[in-house]
Amino acid sequence: MSLKSIMIQKEDVISVTPDMTVKDALAKLVTSGVRSMPVIDSGGKYLGLFNFRALVGKLLPASACVEGGVASLSFMAEDIAFIIDKFEQAKAMTVAEIMRTDVPAIHMDTVFEEALLQIYSSDAPLPVLEPETGTLVGLFSKQCAIAHFMARASAGKGE
């Protein structure tokens, strides 16, 4: 089963450019109602993903966000000013500075089961790329997967 008919098609994907400010990207995130936006350059090449996790990774102390770091921040109670400070700084950055590059990318010919396994352990939708050029051709989200289950299940019943 190819992902072509299951994924969100390129023309429907809401994306941002790397030179956009974080402030503008956040506004776009809120108005369009999506949770993640791929970062695409002028040639259509996929560069990274902009979402909540990308933003909050810049707001939390770095030593709490990495492997082997501080396990709990419950001791920092009543210290929101620190986070807001960092939010103000992050707003002025460009999308390229905070985007995530750790989300696994898949290809159009990745089988559905594999795509499902990948998204099972991912907190974000997976970019679907053209292998040679790295151009974004679509986005595979959890909603895509659920819609596909439902479509197949009801189709099965009808037969």
Partner: peptide, 11 residues
Amino acid sequence: DGVMKFNAREM
């Protein structure tokens, strides 16, 4: 002051 407000016991 922010550091002084930390609640170390939570650790």
